[in-house]
Amino acid sequence: MASTYNEKGTPSSATLSVRALHKSFGVLPVLKGIDLHVQRSEMVFVLGPSGSGKSTMLRCCNLLEEPDSGAILIEGDKLTGPGVDLNKMRQRIGMVFQSFNLYPHLSALGNVTLALRRVLKMPREQAESEAIAALTKVGLSNRAGHFPSQLSGGQQQRVAIARALALKPTVMLFDEPTSALDPELVGDVLDVMRDVKEQGMTMLVVSHEMKFARDAADRVVFMDGGVIVEQGPPEQIFGAPTQERTRTFLSRFHG
C-alpha cells in the first residue's frame, strides 16, 4: 500500500484532524497548539518523553479530556461544539488503553458485545456473531467465554482491541498499548496491531515500541513540551532527525 504521507498533510481529506489544540491542567499548559492530520489507512506513531503531552493529545481526540481550545474532526465532522452527539461520534473512534480497562464482570464476548447491543442496538445474535468475528481477528475466538481474570495481559489487551474493532471505527487510538505488559507478551499485541493496519485501519499510536514504529509506522511524530517538534517517515526520524531534542531523546534508546 502506498504511503499517504504528505509533508503538510492535507487537512481537507484527513480522516482525523487535530487543529490548534490547546489544553492545560490548572495553570500548567500541557498542549500548546497541536496540529496533526492522519490520512485514511495511515498509521501515525507519536513518540516523546513522559510529560510531553502525547497521551493527553490522544485522550483529547475522543474527548476523554476536554480541550481548552482547538478542534478535532473525524472525516471533516467536528467532535466539539453545539449539537454534536458525542456518543455517536465516539463510535467512530476506537480506543485502546494502557491498562486494558476490560470490564471484569463480563466475559471476553460480553466485553465486545456490550456496546454493539447497547449503542448500536444490535439483536443479541447479530452482536455475538460480530463479536466472534472481531475476536477471531485478534486470534482469541477460542477464549470468548473467558473472563478477564482468566486471561493473560496480552490476551486482555487483544480482547480490548477486539472491543474497539467490533464497532467498525473510522480511526483507532492506542494509548501505550504494550507498556503494562510483560516483555514476552508484547509481540502478540504488536502482531495484532500490524494485522489491523494491514486491513486498512487508520491508527494513531502513542507508544515506546521504537522497533515496531520503525517497521510498521507510516509516519512518526515527535512531541516534547506540548508541541510537535518534528515529524516524518520513520527512516527520517530515526535515521536523520533534524531537531536537537529529537536526537537527545532517541539517543537514550539507542544506548
Binding site: N87, R90, Q91, F97, N101, L114, V119
Partner: peptide
C-alpha cells in the same frame, strides 16, 4: 477505576449506560 468509565464512554455508551 476511572478507566472503566473511560473504556465504556469511548465505545459510545452514554453516561447512564
Amino acid at each position: 477505576p476511572k478507566g472503566q468509565w473511560e473504556a465504556a464512554r469511548s465505545t459510545g455508551l452514554t453516561f447512564t449506560q
